[in-house]
Write a protein that binds this DNA or RNA. Structure first.
Lengths: 153, 153
DNA sequence: ATTCGATTGGTAAAATATCCCAATATCGAC
DNA sequence: GTCGATATTGGGATATTTTACCAATCGAAT
């Protein structure tokens, strides 16, 4: 796995903020001509450094006014239990993020919903129906102060 | 603000997962021809429903092995204090997400770093130097079970 | 200096986005 | 139902952009 040089990191920095830049614009920004810039981008894609290209959608425009962080403890923490939980979580579109945590909770989830009623539906029909959950604690977000997908390069 | 119909939502669903689909491919998937599909996409962009197009980068490939959730309480919660905190946070690339929360903490942050040492540097040179912070509590993520940018449509 | 390997830059062809206009569908009023 | 007005669709021409090829350049080791 070859290292990322300064130009690669510049490319990643720009594409993380706007993937619709043309190769010409990107090349200008990083100080290359189109050809080598293009090859570098393709290489970054092939190596999996760039994993995908996506559109980001405004949460409010979709009417998703509720963001919730959920702390979860499992009854048991054997690998099999963790895997079963991970598989279930992964299927649900409402769950945007899930982390296995250190400390006194096992998982931290970020979930979005249209309103409190639909969040309650998510809890009742999905999350609380999972086996092996010892406790669930919801914390609500009043507002999103910052949300970025761009990793520091 | 016109409502999003079923086709709009389909478009958003596909573009949230792969914005490199050609108009032809996208049009086929949603059951339109290229022209109306293209116009709908442009409209979604103009209305701000689609906010941006970005490349997602592999966190491991960048050597960012540490993900931390930080709970923060401020000494005071006047609007001015909140704004000052928000402004500071927004400048720092290490902070990917920040939410104003209900309950007994004020903010929840998600921060990434290369390793524990650089996380410590972030804490010492940035976060703890802010005025008006009453308490900071870090929880570390052992692994990312799910991470999605795609909102449910 | 010279050679080898890797990276670069220009160019041309292919793929794609974008715009215009006619045709079609949708909705409300009668 | 029928008509008319409005919004939406589809096809085709044009402009942009991506992509592949090849010669030129750069860098390092000898």
């Amino acid at each position: 796995m070859p290292e990322l040089d300064a130009i690669d990191r510049k490319i990643l920095g720009y594409l993380q903020n706007d993937s619709r830049l043309t190769m010409q614009e990107l090349a200008d920004k990083v100080g290359l001509s189109v050809s080598p810039c293009h090859r570098r981008v393709k290489l970054l894609e092939e190596r999996g450094v760039i994993s995908r290209y996506i559109a980001t959608v405004d949460q409010k425009a979709l009417g998703l006014h509720v963001s919730v962080f959920i702390s979860i403890k499992l009854a048991r923490q054997k690998e099999e239990d963790l895997n079963r939980f991970a598989r279930a979580i992964s299927k649900w579109d409402e769950v945007l993020e899930c982390y296995l945590m250190t400390g006194n909770r096992d998982y931290l989830l970020r979930v979005v919903a249209a309103d409190l009623a639909s969040y309650e539906t998510f809890l009742k029909t999905k999350l609380t129906r999972l086996d092996g959950i010892a406790s669930i604690e919801s914390s609500f977000a009043l507002s999103q102060v910052k949300y970025s997908i761009a990793l520091p390069v």
